[in-house]
Computed example of a mutant assay.
Amino acid sequence: MKLVKNIQNIARKVLINEADAIRQLSTFINDEFASCVQAILQIRGRVIVTGIGKSAIIANKIVATLNSTGTPAIFMHAADAIHGDLGMVQKDDIVICLSKSGETPEIKVLVPLIKRTGAPLVALVSNIESFLARQADYVLNATIGEEACTLNLAPTTSTTAALALGDALAICLLELRNFDSRDFARFHPGGSLGKQLYLKVDDIMVNNEVPVVRLDTPLKDVIIEISSKRLGATAVVDTEGILQGIVTDGDLRRYLQKGADVVDANAAQLMSPGPRTIEKGEYAVRALHLMQQNSISQVIVIEEGKVCGFVHLHDLLKEGII
């Protein structure tokens, strides 16, 4: 039990250390940070993010976040840069260099070479008095008190702080570019997230037959329509084709359990009026929300009151939206 408590205390201490460091970062957001954001907005090239060791790993993540939120970015390893990769830096780019100390040998070699390209240099550092910070055009202050590592050696809190500051930079750029969900969908077309942002009910309903009966359709034919179209329900329309209600498997069971007349029964007697509908052209994720909110397994797609199709819960599962 003592060992368990010790493990819990160590974990809590790490999280508190890193949370406090991120909270402290908010006090370092100043005019220089804002100027850096404005400079990135104005460049005609790309944001090139570089670093070495653990900073290189964080740099990769910042690049991924920038690209996915509308700011073109690429990663350049600091060690590889001085062996040929520096050729990717053009004067219309801006370079963000990550380094806790700002004094590593590779960084000291790289910085003058970057300056020679004419591209502005941004230092994301924990030591604002370092060589890197002094040479940079913009300094993003990621100063921390100490690492979460009990030896104060392993990059832990410092990399978390750098990552958080990179996120702050990316989201500022996102908002200033008026980057919206449609833009996000263009950059994330794959997976469930992308489909939630671009897939519409029109794309799904074409895979289903459209069960429809009239108000005066006899019970027998209602059952045949439901069974043959395999959606567990049928829409009920009037003579003008305007939706009036829905008959589901559950409606049929409840009607029969009442012991009501089955000989002369028709769709008007069986149906539930005012079914849940969704307009043609709506996003499929909206159909999912309707199903979840109303505990139903299908939604009728309509256009100007007329039935266009059905979207079933199974369709959304198949598309990976759920």
Rank of each mutant, 00 (worst) to 15 (best):
G166N: 04
I74L: 12
V4H: 13
K306N: 07
G241D: 06
L193R: 07
N178C: 04
G118W: 04
T248L: 02
G190K: 11
I74G: 00
V4D: 11
K318G: 04
K306I: 00
L288I: 06
K280S: 14
L215N: 05
F75R: 00
N207D: 07
I204C: 08
T217D: 09
L140E: 05
L41T: 01
D80V: 07
G190H: 15
V109H: 10
K318D: 12
Q38E: 14
I58D: 02
K91W: 00
R230P: 09
V49L: 05
Y283Q: 07
K258Q: 15
P275I: 09
D221S: 14
L193A: 11
V247I: 15
G84M: 04
T160V: 14
K229Q: 11
I48T: 01
S228A: 13
E240G: 00
N207R: 14
Y138T: 12
K54F: 04
E103Q: 11
A287F: 08
L132A: 08
S68W: 01
R23N: 14
V47S: 01
N152D: 14
R177K: 15
G281V: 01
E146A: 14
P155T: 13
C172E: 10
S35F: 03
G281I: 01
L231S: 06
G70I: 08
E304P: 01
C36K: 02
Q269P: 07
I114L: 14
D202T: 13
I40V: 14
N207W: 05
Q42P: 00
A284C: 06
Q269A: 15
V212F: 08
F28G: 03
K306L: 03
R276S: 11
L25S: 12
S130R: 11
I58C: 04
I16E: 14
T159V: 10
V237S: 02
A267D: 08
F33K: 01
N67L: 03
V109M: 15
D221A: 05
A267W: 06
E103M: 11
V262G: 06
V122C: 06
K220T: 12
L132D: 07
D31I: 04
Q135R: 03
N9E: 15
V210K: 15
K258T: 14
L231Y: 03
D20F: 02
A56V: 00
T277C: 12
D183F: 02
D264H: 15
L25W: 05
A59D: 04
F33T: 01
I226T: 10
S99V: 09
G309D: 09
L197F: 12
C172V: 01
Q42I: 00
A78K: 02
A161S: 15
Q90M: 11
D93G: 01
P72A: 01
H188W: 08
R254W: 09
A64N: 05
L3S: 13
S181G: 02
S228N: 13
S68T: 10
P218C: 09
P275Q: 08
L132H: 11
G241C: 05
L256P: 00
D85Y: 02
V122G: 04
K61W: 02
L132M: 11
A287Q: 03
A233W: 00
V212K: 13
A235L: 03
V311W: 07
L231E: 07
R116N: 11
G245P: 04
V139H: 06
C149K: 09
S297Q: 10
A185E: 05
G320C: 09
E32S: 10
K200G: 05
A81Q: 06
L199K: 13
Q244C: 13
D31V: 03
R186Y: 07
